[in-house]
Design a protein around this nucleic acid. Structure first.
Lengths: 133, 133
DNA sequence: ATCATAAGCGGGTATATACACCAAATTTGG
DNA sequence: CCAAATTTGGTGTATATACCCGCTTATGAT
């Protein structure tokens, strides 16, 4: 991949390419890395509201709502109403739990391949960038 | 920003956040960093076909076609037919050249801010990642 | 208790991106 | 020289993402 002067485009391009690798690894499950990540997040926080999911992932609520809706249509997440009638409460379905179980080794292998490819310094740099923003 | 175990999501999140910074910097121009980058690419290669743009940026042709169409609607790019009647030839308009001129200092300042924020090691790591993919 | 304010969501709209498929133009092989 | 393969683009469809607006529900202050 050609290196540009613009750090932003370089980051975007890197994210695009790495995402393609993870997406391909999860392809047997029929979900993307973004969806897999969201499922894991829900697993750790459930029952959780859309606003809370948006807050912890620093995504717009509407983005979360749409992504959750897709996973609901796939049968991996369920949405219900909380005590607070405004709140949508998100939980994993059994199929969602199963997807996480089946996806774990696929993700592990992919993650290991990327680690091997980039080396510990670049991996550390990625984490550093996040904390520095 | 919270650091996840998944390197892919960390890269995506970093790209998302950094993009927001560049987009805000270019906001006076009414274009995004992705559009600014495409304009600069066209400037260096014009006259250039969609396929060629896709090849050098490693984007899908359809993505390039749509992004070019948007910039054409904004009056910053022009599309014509080449000798090869299949080819769409993309060139900068005067307004496009003007946008690059006006955007340059905005981009410079933003780029400098990000460099200062991340430091040379992280900046180098970003470039390295691209070449290692 | 009432009424203003705040919180939580959904929908509309927009960009960025990819893949699959189709039509038109060109190149290549026989 | 013509049929077949290739190239180039466009369109349809899909995900990921953000911003704004409006509706409903909750909360708080008087």
């Amino acid at each position: 991949m050609i290196v540009l002067p613009c750090h932003c485009m370089n980051l975007r391009n890197a994210a695009r390419k790495v995402s393609a690798v993870y997406d391909a690894a999860l392809e047997p499950l029929g979900i993307t890395i973004a969806q897999f990540s969201l499922l894991r997040r829900v697993k750790r926080l459930e029952p959780v509201s859309l606003t809370e999911l948006g807050r912890v992932t620093e995504h717009d609520r509407s983005t979360i709502g749409r992504n959750v809706r897709l996973l609901e249509k796939m049968g991996l997440l369920a949405q219900g109403k909380g005590k607070d009638q405004r709140e949508t409460v998100v939980t994993l379905t059994d199929a969602g739990r199963e997807a996480l179980t089946q996806g774990a080794p696929l993700w592990d292998a992919c993650q290991a391949r990327i680690e091997a490819r980039l080396g510990p310094e670049r991996i550390a740099a990625i984490a550093d960038i996040l904390t520095m923003l």
